[in-house]
Structures are given as structure tokens and as C-alpha cells.
Design a protein around this nucleic acid. Structure first.
Length: 573
RNA sequence: CGGGGCAUGGCGCAGUCUGGUAGCGCAUCUGCUUUGGGAGCAGAGGGUCGGCGGUUCGAAUCCGUCUGCCCCGACCA
């Protein structure tokens, strides 16, 4: 492609709306443009990146035996009503209606559609297992779209759905997908981790996520190098503290703490670390009353764990300040376990505290020297909190560390959740109807593009991993208008490289050299050749690698083989 | 959804408090000079100041209302 024939606008200044580096660079390099909140257009150079990612995904899905299909983006409400998700999916679902006032949604995912296909197409156990996949535009009306392509409302996703007679077959395909995903992210040159996950909205049992590691990631991942444990923090169990709870050594006292509501304020006021304070959160209970959850002051509630408790309403709902005052007579900020009169469920670590600080159930007062059993009833004990760095690994091989990650892939064993709701059955060997088991496997294709930039950039711009670079090679021609010899040499070089099967972006624009260098760095194609009058005199072109900055002068006659060698190094990396 | 902020040429911003000529940088176009890391000079085009309503002799500026966008948000109970 010739840049002289491509309207390509780059920005020197960072657009105000872009917060994370991938969003900034995608806009500055002219790869995408925002149409409206969370909705983007892919410009010519950007689309080439997306297509290359798609291609790697497609090749590996095909290799793993999956079958590509393309399902409708617009889906009728009836199918979603069959599984009950029309009501449960909530505002994330973009609902639309046609001229007859029939209801549809723009698909945020395709379990209902594929299950409908499966129940129509699949009749016999002999046809199983089957794994269908598609690469499709999805729409989820996120509460808060942000970070450009990382949390967009409209996005490109690869989703696959497998159908099985039994758990063993499901397990086999699930493992095959895990291997395919590992190949995909490895081929794309991404630094990633596979982690155990909560299966969340979609439901089902076993589930793993694939995270590209980046500080800007929205997810926290707990991992342990000692035992290879890795899981999303929300799905990581915290272990009970070792040993028995210390015995009480101080007496219970009530102290005035005017205006000190938060753990930080109370801790600072009394000179006590947050880890010695107890925080009580009142949440809606499953029986309509309130339930108190007790955490150590320095720990955070894990909503997923709390929701799983039978006493707690799901979804988790924090009691409003008004409701708290109404029920307990205590303003928020001063609640404690002593004489509270509500069921208390304490996190392991909170239940292990002795001589701790808590609210006195009286405005502007706290208590010190509080002890379970002596002052407050022994609480029910559960795992309620997020793990923190330094906690023991559930794998038993050391302590946990926390890293941030961008979720780019997720695989689930769905079981019969959808197939049962939609009566997707086949006949078994005995001629009996059997509900199929399902797996589902997603990859955020457009999110990968953003994640790759988060992981691969410097102060000058993007540094594409070679497999997703919009071109293999960028060829800069300096001052083509000043020299017919330079132009002719560039044309010969361009033609020759293309004949060798190399995808070349030729900068033949009438622009100053400085502009070309700066924009080449911004765009981030891994390999660059510069042809100018200076080098041509000696029959040389200059090579530079984007990532390392390594340079070499190459004789015109040797360019083909030299470049081929450089490209070969990429695929080996 | 709650809270906060912003809306002025394609992009980044000033001007709004204290009403009266709409301005700067980047980008775009023309010419000249330049030409190996986002050039210099001279000139030019481009704005219903987000929409609607009001106050006023006069509104980007004051008032009301609507819309859009951005940021933060169970953090403590």
C-alpha cells in the first residue's frame, strides 16, 4: 500500500477523551475513530490489525476442529425468553423493535441462537461432539464504557459453542480449546496468563480466563510462582488464619470518636491500624431482613463470595443509610457487633481478631478491646474477602502476588443450562432423548488489539507484535521529489519485496523526513527500511527495528534476503 | 443509576466571573525558502460558541430547560 494514496491523519496531541495509552495511540495513529460513546470505526490501517488478529484466531480454531458459522447480530426476544435471560440480562441488553413492534435485541452473546441451531440440526449422538464458532460484532450496553477499545459497547468477539453427549467429551473439547487459546495468544506475541475464574453471568461450572498482563488491566489476578496457582482475585479463596484466635487481654471500653466514620478516620483517631479494626457492612438478607458482614478494616468484601451465602440476597445489595438507621437506630459509621441484634457473618480473618476496635452502635462512639465470645456473640464464619498480596496460596506452595490483567479470553463448561431450558436433545444409542452438554469459549478480538498496545509501546508510539502489525515492513522514501534515482530505486525495491510475498507500506508521500520518521514510529510496524539519496549513492538502504532500535546498512542487492531473515526471526519469537 | 466536570473551526485550548470586535496552537489550502527525527516566513479558508426558550438596546458570556460527552462511585456500615 502506498501512503500517498491513503488519507491518513495522525495527531500530535493526545485527544482529551483518551485516558489509557492504547486508546491514545489508537486515536493518534489514526487506526480507529470514535463515533459515539463506546462505539468505534476501524480506519484502513487499523482494520488490517483487526483482520490479522482474526486470522490467527480463525486458523487455530480451525486447527482445533471447530466449524465457522455466522449467526445473526439481531436476535428475537422469544429465544431469550425461553432461557429467562430476556428479563435477567437487564440493561446490558440493547433492546430494539421492528415496525410490527416485535421485540429483538442486538446480540451481546449467542448461547440462545446456537442452542436453537443445535436443537434443529443435531438429531443423533453420532453427530457429536460439534464445536461451532463465529467472529462477530456484539453489543453490550455497558454501564460505563471506557478505555477505548478495552471496554467498548460494540466490539468484535470470537465465540464458540460445543455440544456433547457426556461430561468426558465436554472436558476433552474444553481442554482442546484451552490449548488452542494458549497457541493463539502465544502466536500473537502476547504476555498472558491462564487463570481460574468465576463463571458469573453465563453460568455453568468450570471456567478459566486468559489475561494479558498490563498495569492498566481492569481485573486483579492472584498468582503464586511457587505452586503455579493463578486465579481471578474475585474467584480466589482466602484461607483461614493459622492457629487459634488470641485470647482477650484488654477490657471492653467505649470511647467518643466524634465524626470518625471511616476505618481510616477511626484508626487515625485512636492510633490503631486498620487491621485491628472491624468493619461491619449491612446487606439485604435473603429473608427480607438485614445481615451484617464483618471484615477486617484492611480487607475488602468479595461480592461474589457474599452472594453465595444462603443468608444473603442475590444480587448483593448494600443496605441504604436510611434503612440502616431505621433498623438498628445507629447512623452508618458506628455499627459494631456488640448488641447489634442482627445475624453477623464474619470473614475468617475478622473472626480471628482479638482486642479489636468496632463501632459502639451509638452515634460518634466506638469500642476498643472488643472480643468475640466475650463481648459479642460468636459470629458465623465464612470466606468473604478478596485475597491480598502476601496471603497464602490456595495451591499450598507459597504466598500470593497480585497482578493486573486484561481479560482477552474466557472458556466455560456450561453443562446443560441452556440446552435443558431450550430442550436441545439428541437420541442416544438406545434411542432415548438426551439433553446435550455445552461448552462456550470467547475471545475479545478487538480488545486484543488494545491489550497488545498496552503491552507493546514506548514514548514514540506503538510497537506491534509482528503477527498483528498492519504491515510486515515500512519503506520510507526520503525526498522522492528531489531525486528520480531515489524514486526509481524505491519503486524497484517496493515491487521486489512485494513479489517476495512481503506486505509493505510504502511512504512515498511528499513530506519532510522528520514527519515520516515520527509517524512511522507512531504506527509501530516492526521493521523499517529507509531509502534516501545519501545511502543510495553507496547502493545501500538503512534498516531499523522498531522495538530494539537496532540499525543496519544493507546493500540493495541483499535487501530481499536480509528482510526475509528479519521476518523469520519474528515468527520464531 | 448516584455524584462531579465539560460542551467555542477537524484536534487541543483561552475568552464566560465583570454582556458590546470570537481568539491562540496544531491540522488544512496557496506561495517562497527548506528537506535524515513532527520546518520557517507570508497569506488564505473554515465557527448558527451543543439544542431550545427567556432576560436585555445587545448574549459564547446572565437565567431556565433539554441533549451529548468525560471522570469517579459498595471502601464503609
Amino acid at each position: 500500500m502506498r501512503l500517498s494514496q491513503l488519507p491518513w491523519t495522525t495527531l500530535k496531541e493526545t485527544p482529551a477523551e483518551a485516558e489509557v495509552v492504547s486508546h491514545q495511540l489508537l486515536l493518534r495513529a489514526g487506526l480507529v475513530r470514535r463515533l459515539t460513546s463506546g462505539i468505534f470505526s476501524w480506519m484502513p490501517l487499523g482494520l488490517r490489525v483487526l483482520r490479522r488478529v482474526e486470522q490467527v484466531v480463525r486458523e487455530e480454531m480451525d486447527r482445533a476442529g471447530a466449524l465457522e458459522v455466522l449467526m445473526p447480530a439481531v436476535q428475537p426476544a422469544e429465544l431469550w425468553q425461553e432461557t429467562g435471560r430476556w428479563d435477567r440480562y437487564g440493561d446490558l441488553l440493547l433492546r430494539i423493535h421492528d415496525r410490527q413492534q416485535r421485540e429483538y435485541c442486538f446480540g451481546p452473546t449467542h448461547e440462545e441462537i446456537i442452542t436453537d441451531i443445535a436443537r434443529r440440526e443435531l438429531r443423533s449422538y453420532r453427530q457429536l461432539p460439534v464445536n461451532y464458532y463465529q467472529i462477530q460484532t456484539k453489543f453490550r450496553d455497558e454501564i460505563r464504557p471506557r478505555f477505548g477499545l478495552m471496554r467498548a459497547r460494540e466490539f468484535v468477539m470470537k465465540d464458540a459453542y460445543s455440544f456433547h453427549m457426556d461430561q468426558a467429551s465436554l472436558e476433552e473439547t474444553y481442554q482442546a480449546m484451552a490449548r488452542a487459546y494458549t497457541r493463539i495468544f502465544t502466536r500473537l506475541g502476547l504476555h498472558f496468563r491462564t487463570v481460574e475464574a468465576d463463571s458469573g453471568e453465563i453460568g455453568g461450572s468450570r471456567s478459566q480466563e486468559f489475561h494479558v498482563l498490563a498495569d492498566s488491566g481492569e481485573d486483579a489476578i492472584a498468582y503464586c510462582d511457587g505452586d503455579q496457582y493463578a486465579a481471578n482475585v474475585e474467584a480466589t479463596p482466602s484461607l483461614p488464619p493459622a492457629g487459634p484466635r488470641p485470647a482477650p487481654t484488654t477490657t471492653l471500653e467505649t470511647v467518643a470518636t466524634p465524626g470518625a466514620r471511616s476505618i481510616e478516620e477511626v484508626g487515625a483517631f485512636l492510633g490503631v491500624p486498620a487491621s485491628r479494626c472491624l468493619k461491619l457492612l449491612l446487606v439485604e438478607g435473603s429473608d427480607g431482613g438485614l445481615v451484617a458482614l464483618a471484615l477486617r478494616g484492611d480487607h475488602q468484601l468479595n461480592a461474589i463470595k457474599a452472594e453465595r451465602l444462603p443468608q444473603v440476597a442475590s444480587p448483593l445489595a448494600l443496605a441504604s443509610a436510611e434503612r440502616v438507621l431505621e433498623t438498628t437506630g445507629v447512623p452508618t459509621g458506628f455499627l459494631g457487633p456488640v448488641g447489634l441484634g442482627l445475624p453477623v457473618i464474619a470473614d475468617h480473618a475478622a473472626a480471628h481478631l482479638a482486642d479489636f476496635v468496632a463501632g459502639a452502635n451509638r452515634g460518634d462512639h466506638h469500642q476498643t478491646g472488643v472480643n468475640w465470645g466475650r463481648d459479642a456473640a460468636e459470629p458465623m464464619v465464612a470466606d468473604l474477602r478478596n485475597v491480598v498480596a502476601g496471603d497464602p496460596s490456595p495451591g499450598g506452595g507459597g504466598t500470593l502476588d497480585i497482578a493486573r490483567g486484561i481479560e482477552v479470553g474466557h472458556i466455560f463448561q456450561l453443562g446443560d443450562k441452556y440446552s435443558r431450558a431450550m430442550n436441545a436433545v439428541v437420541l442416544d444409542q438406545d434411542g432415548k432423548e438426551r439433553v446435550m452438554l455445552m461448552g462456550c469459549y470467547g475471545i475479545g478480538v478487538s480488545r486484543i488489539v488494545a491489550a497488545a498496545i498496552e503491552q507493546n509501546h514506548d514514548e514514540n508510539g506503538i510497537i506491534w507484535p509482528a503477527p498483528m502489525s498492519p504491515f510486515d515492513l515500512m519503506l520510507l522514501v526520503l525526498n522522492p521529489k528531489n531525486s528520480d534515482a531515489v524514486t526509481a530505486a524505491a519503486e524497484r525495491l517496493y515491487a521486489g519485496l512485494r513479489e517476495a510475498g512481503i506486505e509493505v507500506l510504502l511512504d512515498d508521500r511528499d513530506a519532510r523526513p522528520g514527519v515520516k520518521f515520527a509517524e512511522a514510529d507512531l504506527l509501530g510496524i516492526p521493521h523499517r527500511l529507509v531509502l534516501g539519496e545519501r545511502g543510495l549513492k553507496d547502493g545501500m538502504v538503512e534498516y531499523r527495528q522498531r522495538r530494539s532500535g537496532a540499525e543496519a546498512k544493507v546493500a540493495l542487492a541483499d535487501v530481499d534476503s536480509f528482510i526475509r531473515q528479519q521476518l523469520a526471526n519474528d515468527t520464531g519469537a
